[in-house]
């Protein structure tokens, strides 16, 4: 009977595994080495700064990032622009403020405390300008997609001519990593579309990696602090566990010696 149970377990797990592998439309995302993965993962500052450049020069034309503020750009664990740089970046955007003493709204250059300026007034305006498709807000986009960074990274490089037999409507593009392969966004990146300040060659692959890194930080601005604290916390817990383990052995030795 015992063997029967074991057999039952083995069969059911093999069975589940096969069912699982058949079911999930396995998409093999493009892989790259992310500096922020792993126990001590940190962001690559250069990549974050370049990523911001890609975002602001390319993506920001349609995609908002409404939960980020300009001050975040200078905060620790992020792109770490200097305060002066961040202020200059902020000042290059106009925000609506007010009402002033006369009860009127006015525009002024953005300050560090302001949120990222949105490309459209509201969601409806964004839809209207993009053929009915709403370009999603990018603040937490990486966490809002099943494949995470690998998905975004692959999607940006996944534009292809549609295979024969697939018909695309007007304004729809083929992307092999998109769910259902049809995407309203046209390929946003092409080699040399922007010029990096630090001299890095702006290949599609490089830009994809940089902007994805930037989006990861945007979604998880405290990732570095989390990794640092996590390591300390776990080392601490292990030390305490060892101490308590030996204390426990000591205490229980009184009982066991009696038996």
């Amino acid at each position: 009977m015992k063997n029967l149970i074991k057999l039952f377990y083995i069969i059911s797990f093999i069975f589940l595994a096969t069912v699982h592998s058949q079911s999930a439309e396995k998409v093999d995302y493009l892989k790259t080495d992310w500096s922020f993965k792993g126990l001590f993962g940190k962001f690559d500052r250069g990549s974050l700064q370049r990523g911001y450049q890609v975002y602001t020069e390319v993506c920001a034309a349609c995609h908002s990032m409404k939960y980020l503020s300009y001050r975040n750009l200078a905060e620790k664990g992020g792109p770490e622009f200097s305060i002066i740089q961040a202020k200059a970046i902020a000042a290059s955007f106009e925000v609506v403020d007010g009402p002033n003493a006369d009860g009127e709204m006015f525009t002024r250059p953005a300050k560090l405390s302001d949120k990222f300026v949105m490309p459209y007034e509201n969601e409806k305006a964004a839809q209207a300008a993009n053929g009915g498709a709403y370009p999603p807000d990018m603040s937490v986009l990486v966490k809002a997609r099943g494949g995470g960074v690998d998905y975004i990274y692959s999607l940006l490089q996944g534009y292809e001519d549609a295979p024969s037999g697939v018909t695309l409507d007007e304004g729809v593009h083929y992307n092999k990593y998109m769910y259902g392969n049809k995407i309203k966004m046209s390929a946003p990146l092409s080699d040399g579309i922007i010029e990096y300040g630090d001299g890095t060659v702006a290949s599609v692959e490089q830009m994809s990696k940089d902007v994805t890194t930037f989006l990861m930080w945007a979604a998880e601005p405290h990732l570095e602090a989390r990794h640092r604290m996590g390591f300390k916390a776990i080392v601490y817990l292990i030390i305490l566990t060892v101490l308590v383990y030996f204390s426990m052995k000591k205490i229980w030795s009184r009982v066991e010696s009696e038996v």
């Binding site: 126990l39 996590g230 916390a233 776990i234 817990l237």
Partner: peptide, 17 residues
């Protein structure tokens, strides 16, 4: 207490990593 600490190590892995 000992078991709780073991549990907390697993917990911490989820929270931090």
């Amino acid at each position: 207490g000992f078991a709780l600490l073991m549990f907390m190590i697993v917990f911490a892995f989820f929270v931090f990593y």
